[in-house]
Design a protein around this nucleic acid. Sequence first.
DNA 1: ATACCTGCAAATGTTTTGCGACTAA
DNA 2: TTAGTCGCAAAACATTTGCAGGTAT
Lengths: 144, 144
Amino acid sequence: MAFEEERKIFSSFIRNKNLRHSEQRQQIMDVFLKTERHLSAEELYDIVREKNPSIGYATIYRTLKLLSEAGLCRELQADGRITRYEHLHNRDHHDHLVCTECGKMVEFEIPEIEALQEKIARKNGFVLKNHRWELYGLCSDCTR
Amino acid sequence: MAFEEERKIFSSFIRNKNLRHSEQRQQIMDVFLKTERHLSAEELYDIVREKNPSIGYATIYRTLKLLSEAGLCRELQADGRITRYEHLHNRDHHDHLVCTECGKMVEFEIPEIEALQEKIARKNGFVLKNHRWELYGLCSDCTR
DNA sequence: ATACCTGCAAATGTTTTGCGACTAA
DNA sequence: TTAGTCGCAAAACATTTGCAGGTAT
């Protein structure tokens, strides 16, 4: 999905909720949408601050929440304590392989898993909303 | 696995690391091993305190860490921020279905998944150590 | 004009750590 | 005797919130 298209999605989202198009939201959105890495709030804060050193943490967190609601961002709990935010394109769902040593993340897609999950949920009387599937191990660089 | 057997595992673990068999560790371990629910540190603290009101949070956390290292406990990140600790028996690996409304957790086992995960890891040059697979949805009580 | 937003600082909630006193081996 | 432990309070950490002043519509 193109950058401009995503901008429009966020823009409509803001308008539909009767929120405002502020300078700060634009800046944070721009940086976030141009990034493919899984960012922590702190990393995003650092990058955005290079352009606008007066921005605060609160605005970063508040905007990340909006981006998630708009469907452009997904929250990941991968490493223990901190949350990472992943730029979500309108592509197939994927999961993550995480190196416990250096933190490297590799994405993978197993389409068959979706149906299996549905089946498991249904068998237990659940309506499935989403899932987290993370494999932890050592990447090739870290096994040496 | 029987309670006595697990006690022995912890006991050897303590001895091998040249640690001490303290009264507090015994008490925390006893409560933890007798519980099947996924406990938060706070819940464990509350239960242990009924028997020994002088125990502190730090000791709870420190002992949970030891139980995990000894392989008797697994840390779960299921609900957003807090960690829950699951009493791990030497049984087959299982995963969790979590109700996002009431927090209910159901365990399930899909043995075939293990081989699939190994394959994914290998293909990406990773040595698999463990994984987390959590399905989120609404349980039958909460869909009403 | 009037919501909505912002940055700041303070608050929050969970987990960790430093410390002086205590205790198992 | 000497590491290891304990409970406490303080620190750390990521995230959230209250507020007074600023801004988009």
